[in-house]
């Protein structure tokens, strides 16, 4: 089985040169903006900015195509779900009804509903470029240092680093265990009956889980032998100092957040309403 995952893509661009910590802060701020607001103008601005920065990072669309596929399917289903469960949500939010298409029951299509669902979709799209960028332009080694830099306890930051370190390892052991068990006579092809296949899947999952439990012990020992966690602080081999561009990016993101919050308070609602 092929497990498709995003991973670091090495390029020499200004976005790659930014420190992980700055990118992380920006990503968090933009996520907060997107979560809190329904202001179409801000969301559209974020989406455009995201695409521009994406171009700057020189990441090719085909390198992330599989993710986009997932996202589109997900958004489609989500939109369908919203419409099935709450076809008049838009009208109740914006307070007006402009019917575009008469349908039975409460399923008439309104302009408000379309606008509302457009906003919901935009909320996802507005952050996606940043999330993608953060992952594909930040070297995993720098990731933990960045988390620690923005105030996360270094132990938790290191847990994240261990996760990134062991995903490929676990993938490899999954593959290897599958092979070893097949070599001993387990058949994973579809020729077998369903309940037997379940039992046989267990013959792979259980060693995978138990062997990693062993690994937790072994790795803790190795870390303990090299004095992890003995001090209040820890330095990072792969940390980089903030540069001008990092400060600029963070400042810009903060400004946008303030603007967005100010607009919401000023309006008294997080929904931007073009209908009245």
């Amino acid at each position: 089985m092929k497990m498709q995952m995003l991973s670091y893509i090495e390029r020499a661009t200004p976005i790659h040169r930014m420190t992980g910590a700055a990118k992380l802060v920006c990503f968090i701020i933009w996520s907060v903006i997107a979560m809190t607001t329904f202001d179409t103008r801000i969301l559209v601005f974020m989406l455009i900015a995201g695409i521009v920065i994406f171009r700057m990072a020189n990441v090719h669309l085909r390198e992330i195509a599989f993710v986009l596929g997932f996202i589109l399917i997900f958004l489609l289903l989500n939109n369908l779900g919203i419409y099935i469960f709450a076809p008049q949500q838009g009208s109740s939010i914006y307070g007006t009804v402009h019917i575009l298409l008469h349908l039975p029951g409460s399923y008439s299509l309104t302009l408000e509903q379309l606008f509302y669902q457009l906003n919901v979709t935009l909320k996802y799209f507005a952050v996606i470029p940043f999330a993608l960028l953060f992952i594909v332009t930040t070297h995993p080694s720098e990731f933990a240092a960045s988390l620690n830099r923005i105030g996360v306890s270094y132990r938790i930051a290191y847990a994240v680093s261990i996760t990134l370190r062991y995903i490929p390892d676990v993938q490899r052991s999954y593959h290897e265990i599958t092979q070893a068990q097949q070599a001993r006579g387990i058949d994973l092809s579809k020729k077998e009956k369903l309940w037997r296949r379940m039992r046989q899947a267990a013959a792979i999952i259980i060693p995978l889980v138990f062997s990693t439990l062993d690994r937790i012990e072994v790795i803790s020992n190795a870390m303990e032998l090299r004095r992890f966690g003995m001090k209040k602080k820890r330095t990072w081999y792969d940390e980089r100092p903030f540069a001008c561009i990092d400060y600029l990016a963070v400042a810009f993101s903060m400004l946008l957040l303030i603007l967005s919050l100010w607009l919401s308070f000023h309006r008294g609602s997080r929904y931007y309403n073009p209908f009245n």
Partner: peptide, 9 residues
């Protein structure tokens, strides 16, 4: 080990 001893980078 050096990271854990908080040795400057």
């Amino acid at each position: 080990a050096l990271e854990n001893d908080a040795i400057p980078q």
